[in-house]
Design a protein around this nucleic acid. Structure first.
Length: 161
DNA sequence: GCCAACGTTGGC
DNA sequence: GCCAACGTTGGC
């Protein structure tokens, strides 16, 4: 029997800290990353993001915008239960249990950086040029990151500067 | 709170 | 299937 080859991939997950911050994540063991309501991102959850992948945690729409830490994907895509909850802001009346529209993966806290890596620092770092989140008009809440970009951001978040 | 940029909806 | 109108995102 042939051993299944599985490559770790790297991602950047955005969240508004007022809704869910890395401190909130740090208080839990693992959490379902729910509320994704964009088809491109849904397709990433369905087709690309796997257990064992790594992800940067990014705080958006807040005073200090930037990458704040690291987490791990510990569970593959499942049906996002919030789409069936009429009281949830993520309720989708057009989704059905027979053909659910929206998915979610489970993530686990890895660490909070000693220093937030601010968006302007990402923009000005030549090693990070071309990163998807920095592209004009990008609005996806999950974007791909190369291993080199990932490692560079870990370094920026942990090195003295 | 402004607004650019993008996504979604629905009439035709 | 086009596209105008509307909604949302997210930096500033």
């Amino acid at each position: 029997m042939r051993k299944k080859v599985s490559t770790v991939r790297y991602w950047l997950f955005k969240s508004e800290p007022d809704a869910f911050s890395i401190s909130d994540l740090a208080r839990t063991r693992a959490v379902l990353w729910d509320g994704v309501r964009n088809y491109q991102v849904r397709n990433l959850l369905r087709d690309e993001i796997r257990e064992g992948d790594r992800a940067l945690f990014y705080h958006s729409s807040t005073k200090e915008v930037g990458v704040v830490g690291e987490m791990a994907v510990v569970g593959g895509a499942v049906t996002d239960p919030l789409q069936f909850d009429p009281k949830s802001q993520y309720y989708d009346p057009k989704s059905t249990k027979e053909a659910p529209r929206w998915l979610a993966v489970t993530v686990r806290y890895v660490r909070t950086f000693p220093r937030l890596v601010p968006l302007p620092m990402l923009r000005s770092d030549p090693a990070l040029s071309g990163m998807q989140i920095l592209e004009r008009g990008n609005r996806l809440s999950i974007t791909a990151v190369t291993k080199a970009q990932y490692d560079r951001i870990i370094r920026l978040g942990t090195m003295k500067r």
